[in-house]
Design a protein around this nucleic acid. Structure first.
Lengths: 166, 166
DNA sequence: ACCAATGCGCAATTATCTTTCGCACTTGCG
DNA sequence: CGCAAGTGCGAAAGATAATTGCGCATTGGT
């Protein structure tokens, strides 16, 4: 994956598509100040370079019946690379685990999980997570309420940095 | 927001749009097994009902220069509702904070943060987060590497539940 | 059995995307 | 300095997709 040089227009495109991924190409072109064809070419380039990984509908999981969100801090017995990989692979296979990040510090992994209800989660916790070999400790915290949830890039910060460097 | 009754087709639509938010309506209709017009009508209904919150491009923040990801566990002095709201409002204003969740247990909030580099984050930590009134303790953990990151709904689990209930 | 309501599919219109072409600007070499 | 090659842009035309209106079938209730 080559490092693509991004100009102001590319960054605007990314910001707009992050805000509204279904925007039409003509609308996008209008907003970033160029005509449609070169705009589409830039988008394609951004997609092929991997800077745009994809587009996803943001589905309200709570309304769909996943009312429980839990963060789980996991510590392992062994931190050998093979063991770390093995645990990560397990996480990829568990549908209730939506995110898995390896951390520094005393905890090895943090997992973001969803579940339809508490008993479903407990079932997963005791039946799957805690019975996984090499798992030494798990501390879970229920999400009481969400105050902010905007995965993505803060483009305002990015612009500021670019202007400083330029 | 009324509770919408979802049939199999609606759930397929949600799953497909979560996987690929830019899919054309005709392609979507083909995949879920109906013709284009009723498919579009269903999508509009799902959007208006709030089940689909929006569509977003998934931008590779690391490639864009945000190489640092940090989870911050925050404890407050006072957990009065007004204080909780005040802290949440702060989080919404900080661009480096992408997620803020209120938790049960000893920690009051967990924050997912991004930053261009460590010093930027430290600047935010010492300059903003730690100087915020009512913040009692902050424990941060750097993300070493990400193993899974698929925000959204596990539709396979949902289908299984529906079939069991039906 | 009838009627209303809901949802699907067809067809036509409208909007959008894709492709091709030509032009202007920059870059590098003679 | 001049010229050729490469790159990016905008305009226009053909292809594709989205949207709307309407008729019909199915369902649920009377």
């Amino acid at each position: 994956m080559v490092a693509i040089r991004l100009d102001e227009i590319d960054r605007k495109i990314l910001a707009e598509l992050q805000a509204d991924g279904r925007m039409t190409n003509v609308e996008l072109a209008k907003r970033v100040g160029i005509s449609a064809p070169p705009c589409l070419r830039r988008v394609r380039t951004l997609e092929e370079s991997g800077l745009i990984r994809g587009y996803h509908a943001d589905v309200n999981s709570r309304e769909l019946g996943f009312e429980v969100q839990v963060f789980a801090m996991v510590g392992l017995e062994s931190q050998a690379e093979s063991e770390l990989n093995a645990f990560e692979e397990r996480c990829r296979e568990w549908p209730l685990v939506r995110e898995c990040h390896m951390l520094n510090g005393e905890v090895d992994f943090i997992l973001k999980c969803v579940a339809p209800d508490l008993s479903s989660f407990q079932q997963f916790l005791t039946g799957d997570l805690l019975t996984t070999p090499n798992v030494a400790s798990v501390k879970t915290s229920l999400v009481i309420r969400g105050a902010k949830d905007e995965p993505g890039v803060p483009f305002d910060v990015l612009e500021e940095r670019m202007n400083r460097t330029a």
